[in-house]
């Protein structure tokens, strides 16, 4: 199986590459359009800021390419947010695969720190990527912006308010949490993606 990881101006891509190796998958990190189109699975990971990453994707014509992919695609963290509609981070229009907004966390009290950083639980999980056995499992989050619960939500997490910790529409999957840093639960989810 050929697995491609989208190379662009976001951080933490090496971590995803390492995680793939740990589950026995040799992935290639590339921005080569043919390699991305012909891969069996594409991972769109990253840590970064929405506007600067989105501008980079547009400049390198990766925006249109990602939207047109037909194989299973997994967005992670900023990758997931970039697959949504408008983001409040940098007030920028993203890829629009999921027609939902990305909003900033507003902490109502000192109990809630922003960024939402650390291990939090998955609830109301549904589907092949995150099956029922992972209900209530802890996964690792680091983010200041979130996607509200919507028709594409396949897992939710509660912080300040319930938000989408995973999304799915057709061949597009996405997780707000870092599956590559989420211990055994994360590795299970990555393996599930490989099995789709």
């Amino acid at each position: 199986m050929k697995v491609a990881i989208v190379k662009y101006n976001a951080g933490n891509i090496y971590s995803v590459e390492c995680a793939m190796r740990r589950i026995g998958v040799d992935a290639v990190v590339t921005d080569d359009k043919e390699l991305l189109r012909s891969a069996d699975k594409v991972i769109f990971p990253g840590v970064g800021e929405a506007r600067t990453t989105m501008e980079y994707l547009r400049e390198h014509k990766l925006d249109l390419l990602i939207k047109d992919l037909k194989q299973p695609v997994l967005g992670i963290c900023i990758g997931m947010q970039l697959m949504c509609g408008h983001s409040e981070e940098g007030d920028v229009d993203c890829l629009g695969i999921f027609d939902v907004p990305v909003k900033r966390f507003v902490a109502p009290s000192a109990e809630f720190k922003v960024p939402h950083m650390g291990w939090n639980q998955l609830s109301q999980v549904d589907g092949l990527l995150i099956p029922k056995e992972l209900e209530s499992e802890f996964v690792y989050f680091v983010h200041s912006f979130y996607v509200p619960v919507n028709e594409h939500t396949i897992a939710r997490t509660d912080y300040v308010n319930p938000f989408s910790s995973a999304l799915r529409k057709d061949n597009f999957y996405a997780t707000q949490f870092h599956a590559e840093k989420s211990g055994e639960a994360g590795e299970k989810i990555l393996r599930n993606f490989m099995d789709l």
């Binding site: 090496y14 971590s15 390492c18 995680a19 190796r21 740990r22 690792y140 840093k181 989420s182 211990g183």
Partner: peptide, 8 residues
Amino acid sequence: VAAQVNIP
């Protein structure tokens, strides 16, 4: 560490 450890 990055290669072998699956937590942050």
